[in-house]
């Protein structure tokens, strides 16, 4: 069984286990997100058919909660805090600069699958505002000028 096949098998197994639960959609979507790293169209269709709910419902829930991702995320997920403190300190310009350097709109992933750029709510590190995280790494007191250098560091990192 290929890696992908076993992922689908795992998904089907999970659907089967939750099938008769009321409100099964949320846990199944969460499980799918864990298995695939995102909940793409074909996965949503399998969930809809398996749970006997409409694709509209599945898609509605998946787009309502920002924890669900419709596309696979990049190797490095860049999150820029747009919470009040960071925003006042200029995090929007950091976000804009990232978008410019990576050449992608906010909320998307680079073609090479390396970076995903997203805006987030308060990360709870207001003392460091404006804050950005790349996976588990935290960058505080960010300015747009620092962006190219930081990105280059990850660009050159070996897999």
């Amino acid at each position: 069984m290929s890696e992908m096949e076993s992922k689908y098998a795992e998904l089907r197994q999970m659907i089967e286990a939750h099938k008769d639960w009321p409100g099964a959609l949320m846990p199944v979507l969460q499980g799918a997100q864990e298995i695939f790293g995102c909940v793409p169209e074909d996965v949503q269709k399998i969930i809809a058919e398996g749970l006997g709910v409409t694709l509209s419902e599945v898609y509605g829930v998946a787009t309502f909660y920002s924890q669900f991702s419709l596309q696979p995320k990049g190797k490095y997920v860049i999150s820029v805090c747009l919470g009040t403190a960071c925003y006042v300190k200029g995090s929007q310009s950091v976000l804009d600069k990232l978008s410019e350097v990576l050449e992608i709109p906010v909320g998307t992933t680079t073609k090479d699958g390396k970076f995903t750029l997203q805006a987030t709510r308060c990360l709870g590190a207001c003392g460091l505002a404006p804050v950005m995280t790349i996976n588990e790494d935290v960058y505080g007191r960010m300015t747009p000028d620092q962006v190219p250098e930081i990105i280059a560091k990850y660009q050159n990192k070996e897999a």
Binding site: E41, T54, L55, E57, Y59, T63, F64
Partner: peptide, 25 residues
């Protein structure tokens, strides 16, 4: 669409100001 007709081809998508009644995807 979903309850009376059991078709359910439209529903709310996204959240907040971006909420719209649409077909999925």
């Amino acid at each position: 669409c979903s309850k009376v007709q059991k078709v359910g081809v439209i529903g709310p998508v996204m959240r907040g100001f971006k909420t719209a009644i649409e077909s999925p995807w």
